[in-house]
Simulated assay, not measured.
Amino acid sequence: MAVRIVFLGPLRDLAGMAEREAPAPLDWDGLLAAVGPQVAAKLREERVNLACAGRVLADKTALLAEDGEEVALLPPVSGG
C-alpha cells in the first residue's frame, strides 16, 4: 500500500529524484517527513502547490492521499 510522490521542475532537482513512494495513507506531516528537509522547506512556501489524484488542493495541509494515488509537487510557475 503506497502513494506515489512526483517531484516536478526545480523540486525534482532539489530532491535528486523524479519520484518516490511513501506508505498510504499519506497526510501533510507524512509528506513533509517523506520528502526530506530541503523539499519540505519549499513545500511550506505559499507559492508551491500540491495535486492529489489529479486535483490541485486549495489547502495543501489538508492532504490525505490513499493507496494507489499520486501526489504531485508543483513548483511556482514563471512565464510571460
Rank of each mutant, 00 (worst) to 15 (best):
G54E: 08
A24F: 05
A24Q: 01
A72H: 01
R4G: 00
V35K: 00
D27L: 08
V56F: 15
G68H: 01
A41Y: 10
L8A: 07
A22M: 03
D59N: 13
P76A: 12
L57I: 11
L11C: 01
A15Q: 03
P76K: 11
D29K: 06
K60E: 08
A18I: 13
P75S: 06
L14Q: 02
E19Y: 03
L8V: 06
A2P: 04
G54H: 12
A65H: 06
V77K: 07
A58P: 14
A62I: 06
L14N: 02
A51I: 06
D27C: 05
L73M: 02
D13T: 09
E69G: 15
F7N: 01
A41G: 15
A58Y: 14
V3S: 00
L31A: 01
P37D: 02
V56E: 14
P10M: 10
S78A: 15
W28V: 12
K42P: 08
M1F: 06
P37F: 11
I5V: 05
L43H: 03
P23V: 06
E46I: 09
E45S: 14
R4Q: 10
G16K: 07
D59E: 15
R47P: 15
A24R: 00
V77W: 12
P25L: 05
L32C: 11
L8M: 13
F7M: 05
P37C: 06
L57C: 13
G36V: 01
L31F: 09
E21G: 12
F7W: 01
A51M: 11
L26Q: 04
V6T: 07
V56L: 15
V71S: 03
V3C: 04
A40H: 10
R4W: 02
G80D: 06
A33V: 01
R12T: 00
V3F: 04
D13F: 12
P37Y: 09
L57N: 10
L11W: 08
L31W: 03
